[in-house]
Computed example of a mutant assay.
Amino acid sequence: MYMLFAVIGGICIAVQAGVNGMMGKQVGSIEASFVSFLIGTVALFLCMIFLGKGNPLHVLNLPKWQLTGGLLGAVYVFISVTMTPKLGVATTILAIIFGQMAASTLIDHYGLISGKHIPIDWRRAAGLVCLGAALILFYKK
């Protein structure tokens, strides 16, 4: 069931890139990124009001670096909006996934952020090489 939800999340990201990319061509990249985040913020606010179980005031006690997630998400949305019309949905998403996998592999290897240490082995390295090769194949004209 967890894997199904992850796949649905991936589908949403691909569709989002296409939708936001088209919006960006019509209203501007920064403006489309803002509108996308605004609509998402309103939707999450309503979910928090009606379905939330946590306490949003606890955010005041978090280390400041933990508040960078929204900024990083905004960078991702802006890059997606800007690159999708230039590269296409598939190449943009593949490039994003390659960046995610390379960074997350290093994060796991050094036990950064989550604290879980998962060393890079030949399988993970081979997976990154295959993903990089796929990116080259998708990008080549």
Rank of each mutant, 00 (worst) to 15 (best):
F50N: 10
P56G: 03
S80A: 15
L44G: 11
A32V: 01
T41C: 03
S29R: 05
T41M: 05
I49K: 14
L46Q: 08
A74V: 00
L87M: 03
P85E: 05
I39H: 00
I96W: 10
C47L: 12
G69M: 04
A43H: 11
Q26E: 09
W65M: 04
F50R: 14
K53V: 02
A74C: 00
V27I: 11
S33H: 04
T82A: 10
T92Y: 02
A74H: 02
E31Q: 06
G40P: 01
L51E: 09
F34I: 10
F98M: 09
M22V: 04
S80D: 14
K53F: 04
Q66H: 12
P85H: 07
Q66T: 12
G88L: 01
M83Y: 15
H58F: 14
L62W: 14
G70F: 02
I93Q: 08
T84V: 11
L87P: 03
A95F: 15
A43G: 10
V77F: 07
V59Y: 06
V81A: 12
M23L: 09
H58N: 15
A95S: 14
M83S: 13
P85T: 11
Q66W: 09
F78E: 05
S29V: 08
N55F: 01
F78V: 13
I97S: 10
L67E: 02
G54R: 01
G88W: 00
C47T: 13
M23I: 06
M83A: 15
G52L: 05
F34R: 01
M22Q: 13
T92S: 08
W65V: 15
G28N: 01
A43C: 15
G73V: 03
F78C: 06
Q26A: 07
K86M: 02
C47D: 06
T68Q: 08
Y76N: 05
I39F: 02
G52D: 05
S80V: 13
K64D: 07
A32R: 03
P56R: 05
I93Y: 08
P63V: 03
S80H: 10
T91W: 10
I93S: 07
W65R: 10
Q26L: 04
N61P: 06
M48A: 11
G52I: 05
F78S: 07
F98D: 06
I30Y: 02
K64Q: 09
I93G: 03
K53S: 04
L44F: 15
P85K: 07
C47P: 00
V35D: 06
L67N: 08
L71R: 11
N61K: 09
T41L: 11
G52Q: 09
E31P: 02
F34M: 01
F50I: 13
N55D: 12
G73H: 00
L46K: 03
L71T: 12
G24C: 01
G88T: 04
V27E: 03
A43L: 15
S36G: 04
K53C: 03
L67H: 12
I93H: 10
G52T: 06
P85M: 03
V35N: 09
M83I: 14
V35F: 14
S33R: 08
S33P: 08
M22Y: 05
L38V: 01
T82Q: 14
L46H: 03
L60T: 12
I96H: 09
T41Y: 07
G69S: 04
L51K: 15
L87W: 12
L51G: 02
G28D: 09
